[in-house]
Design a protein around this nucleic acid. Structure first.
Lengths: 205, 205
DNA sequence: CAAACTTACTGAACAGTGTTTAGTAAACAA
DNA sequence: TTGTTTACTAAACACTGTTCAGTAAGTTTG
């Protein structure tokens, strides 16, 4: 009875087809300008069909947000090679910034938009992707503490502070709150702020 | 010929009427759920009338965002009494955090939503409110530098870093990215992260 | 194989959105 | 008392997310 397996497979393929079309349109036109009807047109199905595979638009956003997390984790792969945990921390921050600047729509979906989180809330589910990513940071911070590279002993507190700073830089940038510095100065200023933060951590944390 | 003056006054009153109705609905129901038709119902005018006073919805958002800035500046008034510039900085951060937590919709409008900024962009205008608020911070940071309380000499860089951290904390909170810490731990954790940041600045900046 | 059932899909509708436009009635100027 | 300007609105346009009855194909059963 391989039919149910094939059906299961076909269902998964259809979910992928929808997801890929959604991602393609999102990356091309931004999230605001993509509707269920657009996605339906792209895959040449009726809009109602999408609702057979995703409960609503938020769930589709959530699936996209999950895919974005696996991409971020992939981008983080090189840090495994770094020995010194503080260097690891710095490189993580650099890669995080880079990810946000090169994939602004993905970053928005992961850390700014409320749509994916709304889906979690109505399922009474916890934000696993976010939590895992945070633990990745927390582990590196803990390693710094264990080696005496950071004096402060609460890794969770320190991690939240570090995450906040880096997120703050990119969130202000992505939501165009740094435009007053002039278009060509923004990216350098962000990098300077980041490296100043690292230097401050070195001396003060 | 007092007629044009009266007309001017009436026009301004109407703009206020719309703005107040919009703010009332926004604060009550959140921004997502307020439409031009809702606002029109509230003030008992036709939806089209609103377009005689505001170019589009973004411009209305922009006006609300400006009003929010004057509220923030008002909330900052007590810092004028503080002598020591570093204490001033800390209190500014505390008040900023407090403003965000007590007025989440206003903060969102000022520093997260893109709608008000879209209006600026299409007018080729610069974000004055944001810039002025930033200069307020930068002046305090400069005072810290001048008194040797901060070693780093670039006030702009330092200010951006400080703003980023505080914004990061509240932005993660407001967009529900700290839910994984548990509802009752979130606010204390934010405060701890803030004070850890201050301690780190004291020692490292 | 034919009948019964299940699944996958869609057209059309519902209830909403921001925004524009033609037309009306009142206020003002000549 | 005309002519003109102003303030306003009903209705429409082109969208949006979402639901549901109906259809046609695929699958199972007698």
């Amino acid at each position: 009875m391989g039919i149910v397996e094939r059906k299961e497979r076909e269902r998964e393929e259809m979910r992928r087809l929808i997801l890929d079309a959604a991602q393609k349109l999102f990356l091309a036109n931004g999230y605001e300008k993509v509707s269920i009807r657009n996605i339906a047109d792209e895959i040449e199905y009726s809009p109602a069909t999408i609702y057979l595979y995703y409960k609503d638009k938020n769930e589709l956003f959530f699936a996209l947000h999950q895919a974005a997390f696996t991409k971020l984790i992939q981008d983080f792969a090189p840090i495994a090679q770094i020995e010194n945990p503080f260097d690891k921390l710095v490189e993580m921050g650099r890669l995080y910034l880079q990810f946000a600047v090169t994939n602004p729509e993905l970053y928005d979906l992961m850390f700014i938009m409320t749509a994916p989180i709304d889906t979690l809330d109505c399922r009474n589910d916890v934000w696993e992707d976010g939590h895992n990513a945070f633990l990745l940071l927390q582990n590196v911070v803990q390693a710094c503490i264990d080696m005496g590279l950071i004096k402060h002993t609460d890794a969770e507190q320190a991690s939240l502070m570090i995450w906040s700073t880096v997120h703050g830089i990119v969130a202000l940038f992505l939501r165009r709150r740094l435009s007053m510095f002039g278009e060509d100065r923004v990216i350098p200023l962000m990098e300077e702020a980041f490296f100043l933060f690292i230097e401050t951590l070195k001396k003060g944390l």
